[in-house]
Design a protein around this nucleic acid. Sequence first.
DNA 1: CTGAAAGCGCTTACAG
DNA 2: CTGAAAGCGCTTACAG
Lengths: 346, 346
Amino acid sequence: MSRATIIDIAERAGVSKSTVSLVVSGSPLVKPQTRARVEAAIEELGYVYNRGAASLRKSRSNIVGMVINDLLNPFFAELAVGIERALQGSDHIPFIANTSENPARQAQVFRSMREHGATGIIVCPAVGTDAEALREMTSARIPVVLAMRRVPGANVSAVVPDNRAGGARAVEHLLRLGHRRFAFLGGFSRMSAFRERSQGFKDALERANLVVGTAAVIEAPPTKAGGVAALGQALARSEPPTAVLCFNDIVAIGAVHALAQRGLKAGADVAVVGFDNIAEAEHLAPALTTVAVDSIGLGERAARMLLRQIESGAPRVETYIGEARLVVRESCGASRVHTTALGGAA
Amino acid sequence: MSRATIIDIAERAGVSKSTVSLVVSGSPLVKPQTRARVEAAIEELGYVYNRGAASLRKSRSNIVGMVINDLLNPFFAELAVGIERALQGSDHIPFIANTSENPARQAQVFRSMREHGATGIIVCPAVGTDAEALREMTSARIPVVLAMRRVPGANVSAVVPDNRAGGARAVEHLLRLGHRRFAFLGGFSRMSAFRERSQGFKDALERANLVVGTAAVIEAPPTKAGGVAALGQALARSEPPTAVLCFNDIVAIGAVHALAQRGLKAGADVAVVGFDNIAEAEHLAPALTTVAVDSIGLGERAARMLLRQIESGAPRVETYIGEARLVVRESCGASRVHTTALGGAA
DNA sequence: CTGAAAGCGCTTACAG
DNA sequence: CTGAAAGCGCTTACAG
């Protein structure tokens, strides 16, 4: 009662196993009549193709790895969904691992995926990942595509949003609303997204001839609690900001919360802008103005890029930068400003 | 420059490949000195174990399938995280597939996972999955554990929350708050969770000797839009409800939104209770009272159950029912009631 | 404690 | 268009 093999099918159909192999792999070399006999036998015996055996023989599997830093964050869950979706069209199937931002766990995962014969890998690297960590894959010539985050010094492909432009766009909008005192809240400088987003923040301020006191960029964990803490620090400054750009939407939620604790209202008293545009952003109160990143789309891009690299024997390093566009809702106070003849935002 | 094999190691270490195999599989039969020589060779040649080859030989892989109906819903993403987390301790690695509630896609996925040699599978079934669909796996004696949702008539293991008790608990709380006119909003009767949750809703009403007009249960898509629509229907009734229990938190968000559109406030004008307790529930305005389901914990349970079944050659069908506890926040109006001497909730 | 041999289920030239 | 043969990288009795 163990699983039927190609040999069982061959006997049943009265052909050799080579012919069966040709049929299951869709070769046009087989006479239609023979093919029909084989297919009937497959049906009768409930044969299931053994891809593991085929991979061994071909020295190449159709398994791909998907290594995500934090699946509990909807932003990265969306990335995962995009990757999986794009893979559906191909005949590749993904392993998944959630590293929880743990580089040691990530190293284990890389090894495990190599042992299981992954032919390529998409990774949203854990904070602290260095170029060396990726060498486990690259030195084995396994194509790697980084998603959402870059790894300094690593010469691998990447699919990332235009964090820098997005950060600048948010500030430009706040400038137009009349704000002149800003802070950037949350995240850590060892995160590539932090460096890029805060750089965009500074870019825009400099272009507006505003001086950026270095302390206006306040590092904190990219969590709600981090947002609460960072906002507290910002407000404690001698010249507190009237507008804050947050590292991501979760930090923004914390900032809004911290304002509420002080009897202040985001959008009315202090403008708050997030980053990512996670699904819940529009349901918050006030609805969150944020920089939208098409995470599903980036996931699809990453998967297609990986597939292309797997196919072309000699993958070359490429980078795709996705757009980051501002979605204006309530928390920046734009609507209020609008109705009060603009300019009163500070 | 192709990957080193057990034979390369054997040559390098001056032993047979059998001995190398013993070493890599951690057998205690090998003399420490020999082991050391082999390990040195492994290190030198950068050998990576080929699990695919081992699986073929052993006729058993350590790959497990994880089939999720909707990864974009944080509730199910948490389930996936729990599964993955519990698998980390074992030497099993998960394939993942997101079926997007599409039974046809799900059927493809089952097939693909069989072809790739999954030795067990955890599935949160797409709406519309029937017992027949699961036979692809069960008839091949591949252990299946259903998570979150059941499949009527299917004789397979399941890990689900106590939806019925949770639904009843929510209503009992609303009864204590003084409510007497209720509605259950959202979901469809072909979803097992809908049947169980709405049954708990009815249980509690009957125990309180209240008559449940059948129309008090309003089916609608389990989405925000569904919540908006269902609430509209409920309010249009001759005796509109003063309290609504929603199929899940997403529907509750829609209900709160629909109330706001009418100038009504959840908690003050109509009590709203959700189900699931997704992470954002506490950040909403008003903060959502909801029935908490430990989705990560259930995911871990499901994974451990599957592992156990894979190990014991003859898996028996088992069911685990996780608790569903009420988390009281603002949207049910409990705090308001508290401060107004109770009873004014209607 | 270690080695020689067979075989897991496929694919792939190579003949015919 | 079809078949016989070798081999992918392992494991597993079986000897010794």
